[in-house]
């Protein structure tokens, strides 16, 4: 019970903040977290979670299937049906493309469309901080499809006794998986961001990503099959560029041969050039971008 004479009216008015203030890194972290949340549909309605989570789940299905098969087969047969890592990256490239087409326009275009980009720019961030945080956020999400399934696959194989032999081999395999994951993630993140820089429309950017991938792959196939064009022409295909470099990381095999006549350096050069072009489009687009909302 309140004692007589102890009544008090509290001031609920504006009070200045006098606590510590973190620097730009804290702001970038906020953009990063916001990007990951938005990409995965976290803290949003269920319908926004369906596509990203389903895509990510599907990327793990091949690993689950192979692990299931190898688990029930005798160990001498299990070793023969083990899926190569390079092949796994090829398997998930479709999922990768879908996730890129869905996620990247969502996290890039929406900011500009809704005016959030202006609010970000009104904070202690500049455009390059913002883009860097977005890039890292997109890489983190795409890694759930590129890197994590292969790590999951390697862990499963190791538990079943058909994984890399010894500590050194395990580390080597892990480094190759991470490197391959980055090759795919960086490429598709920049590709998606470049497409999203060109339009605020989610649908247009998504369609552009999918259509340009299909069109360049079809064009490269037609050219190489109907003419005496040099084999490097296959690198016109958007999806072939990172996958070819991944083949070089793991080493060529009969199932996953490398393109004849293209050196590893040239393969890396093609990947780096494509990344540079995408990066150039992003930087040019954002440098010129006016905040009009």
């Amino acid at each position: 019970m309140t004692a007589p004479g102890s009544a008090e009216i509290f001031d609920r008015g504006y009070r200045a903040y006098d606590g510590p203030r973190a620097g730009v890194s804290s702001s970038m972290k906020a953009v990063f977290v916001s990007t990951v949340q938005r990409a995965l549909g976290l803290r949003r309605k269920f319908r926004y979670k369906i596509v990203p989570l389903a895509t990510i789940f599907i990327a793990y299905v091949p690993a689950l299937v192979f692990l299931g098969i190898t688990a029930i087969l005798p160990s001498e047969l299990a070793g023969q049906v083990v899926e190569e890592y390079a092949g796994y990256f090829e398997l998930i490239s479709v999922m990768m493309l879908l996730l890129t087409a869905f996620v990247v326009p969502e996290v890039m275009g929406a900011d500009r469309k809704t005016g959030m980009f202006g609010l970000y720019m009104a904070s202690p961030l500049n455009r390059w901080h913002y883009l860097a945080a977005k890039f890292v956020g997109i890489i983190a999400v795409l890694s759930l499809v590129t890197t994590m399934p292969s790590i999951f696959q390697m862990a499963g194989y190791s538990l079943l006794g058909i994984g890399p032999e010894g500590f050194v081999e395990t580390i080597k395999t892990l480094v190759k998986i991470i490197a391959s994951g980055f090759v795919l993630s960086i490429f598709f993140a920049l590709f998606g961001m470049a497409a999203s820089t060109l339009t605020n429309r989610h649908l247009f950017a998504s369609a552009g990503i999918v259509m340009s991938t299909i069109a360049t792959a079809a064009f490269a196939d037609i050219i190489t099959q109907t003419s005496d064009a040099p084999s490097w022409i296959q690198l016109i295909s958007v999806v072939t560029i990172p996958l070819e470099l991944i083949v070089r990381i793991w080493g060529s095999s009969p199932e996953f041969p490398q393109i004849e006549g293209v050196s590893t350096l040239a393969s890396f050069g093609a990947w780096a050039l494509a990344c540079a072009v995408f990066g150039g489009v992003i930087l040019y687009g954002y440098r010129r971008m006016e905040v009009t909302k």
Binding site: A22, S26, S27
Partner: peptide
């Protein structure tokens, strides 16, 4: 969430 994000962007404790 929205206002918290604004606070995070400005580095509040």
């Amino acid at each position: 969430d929205f206002v918290t994000l604004a606070g995070q962007l400005n580095g509040l404790d």
